[in-house]
């Protein structure tokens, strides 16, 4: 079975013939992890996309579409604003929503079409979501105040964002049909959602209702990327047509088995507790045993519940990949 077909099967709640996909969904590796692994023998000359197959993972390609150009002002401090009000937003508008930058990235996507058609790899893409994107503009804290202080500005940003994204989606689908996509959101933390359901409905629902149907019409599965405990938000997400969630952080309290009981039709990617990778082989095996019953139920691609941490030795990561495939095979056994 091809890499692409394995992913497609799971996304359609079907079991692959041989095993579940073996991917690290966060395909942009943590630079500190790569630096550590290079000290431990990972070849330094591997290109960004060559690392996964070198480590024995299935090849896949992710495209995170740029939403600002290279000259866009940077926040003065981590999590700081680049525009705090409507006037400042207008000033940075020339640097936002850069069609040209997306076009350049999509040239690379075009070069992957033949391999994608042949099933060599799945392709997926990511968009800044309606919670995440305004936060990168307004700054982490000011963004949370903005629901109360500047609702009109929030609405305007999301209108502009949806318009831009719909233009880019048209270009993507003229090239190929990605298997799935994510909205980068990070709108939960370890105690659940950062905003209320009312707030979600008032601000985010209209945005999702503009963008999600277009993506689904083309057959791409729509998934939310949100760290933290997303459990309570799943019903809200389903109402706007979202079909799955990643990365299901264990340390934030997400129980993927409990979620599967309540939501048998929702896609899951992630859920493997990254903290076990710094502990031992036994801890990792115990973690796979925890996940196996959910893997057997379908609609779930097990993967590290965020990037692999730098304190997981390369040798242990090789063991992890072997186990990922071992349990991926067990999951599809009758």
């Amino acid at each position: 079975m091809t890499n692409r077909d394995r992913v497609k099967a799971v996304l359609n709640f079907e079991m692959p013939d041989d095993r579940l996909p073996a991917i690290e969904w966060a395909s942009w590796w943590w630079d500190r992890t790569i630096m550590e692994w290079q000290k431990q023998g990972l070849p330094a000359n591997l290109g960004f996309h060559d690392i996964a197959p070198y480590l024995g993972l299935d090849q896949h390609y992710q495209f995170w579409l740029p939403h600002r150009d290279a000259l866009c002002p940077q926040p003065k401090f981590f999590g700081g604003p680049i525009a705090e009000d409507e006037e400042e937003y207008e000033k940075i508008l020339p640097h936002l929503y850069p069609d040209g930058d997306v076009d350049r990235q999509l040239e690379f996507m075009r070069s992957l079409k033949a391999g994608h058609d042949a099933g060599d790899y799945p392709v997926w893409f990511s968009l800044d979501g309606g919670f995440w994107f305004p936060r990168t503009i307004l700054g982490i804290e000011n963004h949370l105040y903005s629901f109360y202080d500047q609702p009109e500005l929030y609405e305007r940003i999301l209108n502009d964002l949806a318009e831009f994204q719909l233009r880019q989606l048209e270009k993507i689908y003229s090239i190929l049909t990605p298997e799935f996509m994510t909205f980068g959101e990070d709108m939960s933390y370890n105690n659940g959602p950062m905003i209320s359901e009312d707030c979600f409905d008032e601000f985010l629902l209209p945005y999702y209702n503009k963008v999600v149907p277009y993506i689904k019409e083309h057959g791409t599965k729509v998934i939310i990327d949100s760290d933290g405990d997303i459990s309570r938000m799943v019903p809200w997400l389903k109402r706007v047509g979202i079909e799955g969630v990643l990365p299901l952080e264990r340390k934030a309290g997400v129980d993927v088995a409990a979620l599967r009981e309540v939501h048998p039709d929702f896609l899951f990617i992630g859920a493997f507790d990254k903290m076990t990778m710094r502990e031992s082989e036994e801890a990792m095996r115990e973690e796979f045993e925890r996940l196996l019953p959910v893997m057997k139920k379908g609609g779930f691609i097990p993967s590290v519940d965020h990037q692999t941490p730098p304190d997981c030795p390369l040798e242990r990561y090789h063991i992890y990949v072997d186990m990922l495939k071992e349990y991926g095979r067990k999951a599809v056994e009758d």
Binding site: L144, Y145, F147, Y148, G192, P193, I195, C199, R232
Partner: peptide
């Protein structure tokens, strides 16, 4: 108890 969220805490604290 999870009946108000972060924005509500922020504006109340302000």
């Amino acid at each position: 108890e999870g009946t108000v969220y972060v924005p509500e805490v922020l504006v109340a604290a302000r």
